[in-house]
Amino acid sequence: MKKIIAPILALLLLGCQEDEVKNNVDSASAIEALTEYATVNKVFQDVGNNSADAVLSGENATSASKFSNIKTDGPIITVLPLDFTTFPKTITIDYQSGVLCKDGITRKGKAIIVSTNWYGVVGSEHTTTFINYYHNDFKVEGTHFVKNSGTDQDDNLKYSVTIENGKITTSSGKTINYTENSTRTWVAGFDTPLNIWDDEYLLDGTQTGVSSKGVKYSLTVEEPLHFVLLPRSIKSGILNVDVANIKDIKLNYTTSTIAILGQSFPFRI
């Protein structure tokens, strides 16, 4: 899974923050909430992929030799305890004051992962939290939990993913809240653990959140979202979306369209 993230929409986050959750919105407010959803989803998918990278890097390093710091062209990755068999392990991804990564994202701060076993071991659990962690200008908070659920009929690894108390704070102080309960199926790149750019996975499940304007939304995957890294995108898939009082919105990544209130519009991704 690694550093695969959802697409960035070209729209900007607008408006002033409100404390209450709105139950009635117009189509413009609904689209704005979905724009914010795409941003927060992108960030948290990225968190999951980077956490997986760190665990895999720790496994590769400790199986070959003893390194306290894993040297990469990006962050410093520290594994404690520093051996192959002792668990739980604490794996720290330290971007320090900022690292411009190959995918064009500047990250800074720390992501802390506690793992009960290595990433490919069935039943292993990986919990990520954050210390002053930023994805570009977005501050990231919350708890990201992943569990290895075994393989499907095609021998692809499956992982259950839960995000609790997810929150993104923008540079202007707006906050977007996010939760997720999903299943990710790793469909490409597992056999090349040292290459973080060839992974692909399918995402199923549900996601919910509250926009910076207090608009509540929920999303259910109708057709699995197919994430790829290079070029960074969602190749295909359909989301069913409810935004406040507006129901049955369809976000179609296969055709890059959004259907809302009986009309279809291009969805810039």
Score class of each variant (00 low, 15 high):
Leu82Asn: 13
Leu261Glu: 14
Pro75Thr: 01
Leu34Met: 14
Cys101His: 11
Gly189Phe: 11
Lys167Asn: 02
Gln153Ser: 15
Glu200Asp: 11
Gly123Phe: 02
Glu180Thr: 10
Ser115Leu: 06
Gly173His: 01
Ile196Met: 13
Thr116Tyr: 09
Pro193Gly: 10
Thr62Lys: 02
Ala61Trp: 04
Tyr178Trp: 05
Asp242His: 11
Gly123Cys: 08
Val55Gln: 04
Gln96Phe: 09
Lys108Asn: 10
Ala54Cys: 08
Asp46Tyr: 07
Asn69Cys: 05
Phe87Val: 04
Ile93Asp: 01
Asn156His: 12
Ile176Asn: 01
Thr127Leu: 12
Ser218Gly: 15
Lys139Phe: 04
Leu202Ala: 08
Asn136Leu: 09
Ser124Lys: 04
Ala244Thr: 05
Thr90Phe: 06
Phe227Gln: 07
Ser160Phe: 12
Thr128Asp: 06
Asp94Ser: 03
Asp73Phe: 01
Thr85Met: 03
Val47Trp: 03
Ser115Glu: 01
Lys147Gln: 13
Lys235Gly: 07
Glu20Thr: 12
Thr127Trp: 07
Tyr119Cys: 00
Ser97Glu: 12
Ser29Val: 05
Thr92Asp: 06
Pro231Gln: 09
Ser124Leu: 08
Ile113Asn: 12
Asn50Cys: 09
Ile8Ala: 14
Ser233Met: 14
Asp53Phe: 01
Gly209Asp: 12
Asn195Val: 13
Arg107Cys: 04
Leu9Asp: 15
Gly262Met: 03
Ser63Tyr: 07
Thr257Tyr: 06
Thr62Phe: 01
Val187Ser: 09
Asn24Asp: 13
Asn240Ala: 10
Asp154Val: 05
